[in-house]
Design a protein around this nucleic acid. Sequence first.
DNA 1: GCGACAG
DNA 2: ATCTTGTCGC
Length: 231
Amino acid sequence: MTTVPIPEDWPATEEQARAVQEELRARLVLDEIGPPPGTGHVTGVDVAYDDERDLVAAAAVVLDAASLAVVAEATAVGRISFPYVPGLLAFRELPAVRAALDALPCPPGLVVCDGYGLAHPRRFGLAAHLGVLTGLPTIGVAKNPFTFTYDDPGAPRGSMSPLVAGAEEVGRALRTRDAVKPVFVSAGHRVSLDNACAHTLALTPAYRLPETTRRADARCRRALREAVRAA
DNA sequence: GCGACAG
DNA sequence: ATCTTGTCGC
């Protein structure tokens, strides 16, 4: 387990945070397909909080993309860097996520975020932001449609429908298990939406949520309990 | 102005 | 995200 550093230039206000998003958005790479599913590494990242004690814990869990076996993992614990504000989630989660990724003993490959990438008010959600900061290929898989709309996909696993903002397709509602509520996939950095959906299906052989996020969620919660116990 | 709103 | 009991089902 490592410690989370809060960057010196981290925004202190929502105003500054929004300005950072507008600026970094220009560096987002959207013309790459990304790595093919089932090869190399796939890494899940997630964060847990204890607002009372001002504690944050993040985990990065690396899976072998073919077998979905855990290859490596790392955790980071520190202080909360930003409040939760819809549209500014990245400023709350990124310092901890980056610290966990930096502590990994091997390359993460594709990174799967718990949240959105392009599907965002300014088209620069958590996954897009993480991708620009690290250069890594990233995608976002969220549990809720946020402010976007969609038509319910067909019942069979693999069915999908566009997640839209007005007339723009910002992501996709993807059914990962038969007749179970869909997940909401969006491209992050250097990965196409089609490929992001293919990866999500490859990561959901048994549950609604990707194995990457399930593993990372369990791991960061444990790291948080241990940090609370020690504090 | 009011309500909704990833995690 | 987090607070929380039982309960239905494989």
